[in-house]
């Protein structure tokens, strides 16, 4: 690759731009339309939401579906279930659990991933596969023994039970993402810091990790989403608003005796917003982080 001569293209593919925009719009619609529809429904009265033919924008926009969450007593009679009154609590619980999972996961995975990226040691390949193996066993197989374990720890219906479960879920994949990312961080950085007589922890903290930030963000977002979306373990390990998470409450909407589409839609929107905001905040770093992590170091 010594002499790269910039030869102007003899002819440009004339339709490339058009094709690009057509595809972009098509994908955009595919991604946003389903979600748009539940957002639109969440601002409608029930009658408009199930009208035939549908009205694509709320013709009589209303906030009552959302206000129900703030003032659940008024909504009780309307929907006949607890799901509405539990939604705000479950959002709080989901946020706490997912954030804590992301952080705890990051700490544990950073240590492990560092070892795979910097040290050559016996058993490393087996260990790496063993990590992944723990994720290949379907959750349903381990849910009952896991439940018994948590019960014996006295952790049922607490945040900790969920944080611990989700950490074990996310950890193997996070280690895989991070190890490749760390490998792409130039060794010279650490060597330089060592020359400056920084201790190992100091080196990690002030030199290595800042450079690795995009990878850490990607790993954290991944763990956050894992925790945010999980349903089955949350269902079994929690029972009250002290720890119930949003998927469990959302499932209530699916089975409730008198569910309204619009209230369900509002809850669905609320369930998506926090992680979405998070993903958008870290969007740029997310792609960078995955970039180094997934290709090769």
């Amino acid at each position: 690759m010594t002499t790269v001569v910039q030869v102007p293209l003899r002819y440009r593919v004339p339709f490339k731009k058009i094709a690009l925009y057509v595809l972009a719009v098509a994908f955009g619609l595919y991604l946003v339309l389903p979600f748009y529809w539940i957002v639109a429904m969440s601002f409608m009265h029930e009658a408009d939401a199930i009208a035939v033919p549908p009205s694509w924008v709320p013709v009589h926009p209303t906030l009552e579906n959302y206000l129900g969450f703030v003032n659940p007593d008024a909504a009780q009679e309307l929907v006949g279930g607890r799901a509405v009154s539990e939604t705000p609590y479950s959002l709080r619980n989901s946020l706490v659990v997912a954030t804590a999972t992301a952080l705890l996961n990051l700490v544990l995975a950073t240590f492990a991933a560092y070892s795979f990226s910097r040290l050559k040691f016996r058993g490393s390949q087996v260990l790496l596969l063993l990590y992944l193996l723990t994720r290949m066993v379907p959750g349903i197989a381990i849910i009952i023994p896991f439940y018994l374990l948590m019960r014996s720890f006295g952790l049922l219906d607490t945040y900790l039970a969920l944080i611990l479960s989700y950490t074990t879920f996310a950890l193997p994949i996070t280690i895989w993402i991070l190890k490749d990312f760390f490998r792409s961080v130039p060794r010279e950085l650490e060597e330089a810091a060592r020359v400056d007589r920084c201790g190992w922890f100091r080196t990690m903290w002030s030199v290595f990790l800042p450079v690795a930030a995009p990878g850490l963000v990607a790993a954290a977002v991944f763990a956050f989403m894992t925790a945010w979306n999980e349903f089955m373990f949350a269902l079994f390990l929690t029972s009250t608003t002290a720890a119930k998470t949003i998927p469990v409450v959302a499932a209530n909407f699916a089975t409730d005796f008198n569910t309204q589409f619009t209230v369900m839609a509002a809850a669905g929107v609320l369930a998506v917003v926090p992680p979405l905001v998070l993903a958008l905040l870290f969007q740029r770093k997310l792609v960078q982080g995955m970039a180094a992590g997934s290709v090769k170091g």
Partner: peptide
């Protein structure tokens, strides 16, 4: 009193009794 999601009531009760709680 603890109310349990109706769709999963049976499963949850079974898990609780199996776990001794």
């Amino acid at each position: 009193y603890t109310p349990i999601t109706s769709a999963q009531y049976v499963q949850k009760v079974v898990a609780e009794f199996t776990g001794g709680g």
